[in-house]
Amino acid sequence: MSRAALLLLADGRFPAGGHAHSGGVEAAVAHKAVHDIETLEAFCRGRLHTTGLTTAGLAAATAAGCDPLMLDDAADARTPVPALRAVARRLGRQMMRAARATFPSAELDRLAAERPQGAHQPIVQGLAVRSAGLTPQEAASAAAYETVGGPATAAVRLLSLDPLDASRLLARLSTETDAVAAAAADAAARVATEGLDALPSASSPLLDITAEQHAAWTVRLFAS
């Protein structure tokens, strides 16, 4: 299908609820680990190569036609803290509603029926990409970009950073983002022969720990 379909799915204005999440940057700001554009870039780079690679692999494998329910279990095994599993499923549910309205398909309907509380967001995203007639590589690109775009936008609001600096940061990371998406798509292509173990499971201890800390806050600007 059209390239515009990919832009629509990857657009922050696509009504899938992503704007309410900071991708861990709100906790990092509270711990003073992220306080300016340089530390934000380091944060985004770390998230891209961990969460970004893993979610892009899951999205690409779903877009390639792997069983979404098995991928949903694989996503659970790659998400060891309940706070992040809950966020992934909530975002998955919201994306499902938007995806079924924009790119309806029997596969989306089936997953929605089998996971009424929401499947992991990259699984739904991958299936939406597939329903839009796009490729696994494009699913990986959308997922990888989102893992840095979300925190960069959130940090602008949290730290009153210059949005132009944040855009420049995302442009600087674009080559790395493409490389992560390509690695994820390669891994997804190997699932047919090697099984789900071929998918990346890159993880970060601090993102897991601080996500649970953040979920316990009583007052916060972002949901995660």
Binding site: A42, D76, A77, R78, D197, S204
Partner: peptide
């Protein structure tokens, strides 16, 4: 599958010492 995690620390792992990882 119960747990599947992959970590990479020390150069040249990208971002390993930054605010998102260690």
């Amino acid at each position: 599958p119960l747990l599947d995690q992959h970590t990479a620390y020390g150069d040249p792992a990208p971002g390993w010492d930054g605010p998102a990882i260690l």
